[in-house]
């Protein structure tokens, strides 16, 4: 799914998806719920007190195991 598609699905500017990906902006609960609904995931996976590890590292780890 592209940024633009996700942005259209949740009703925000595609640039805002970039801000969320980089951790430059913390979404409101409403936006987080919309994003979680798009991915059929629980909203808790979008929030963490610790910074999320880079996606590339996570994918590499999954590939190794």
């Amino acid at each position: 799914m592209s940024r633009r598609e996700l942005a259209e699905a949740v009703g925000v500017n595609p640039q805002t998806i970039g801000y969320l990906e980089r951790g430059d902006y913390a979404p409101s609960v409403e936006l987080a719920l919309k994003i979680a609904a798009v991915f059929s995931a629980p909203v808790e996976v979008l929030f963490s007190l610790e910074p999320f590890p880079p996606l590339a590292r996570t994918v590499t780890k999954q590939g190794d195991s």
Binding site: G11, V12, N13, Q15, T16, Y19, L20, Y25, P27, S28, E30, L31
Partner: peptide, 8 residues
């Protein structure tokens, strides 16, 4: 016409 991040 702005989303929540742009408004903030």
């Amino acid at each position: 016409l702005l989303d929540e991040r742009e408004l903030a």
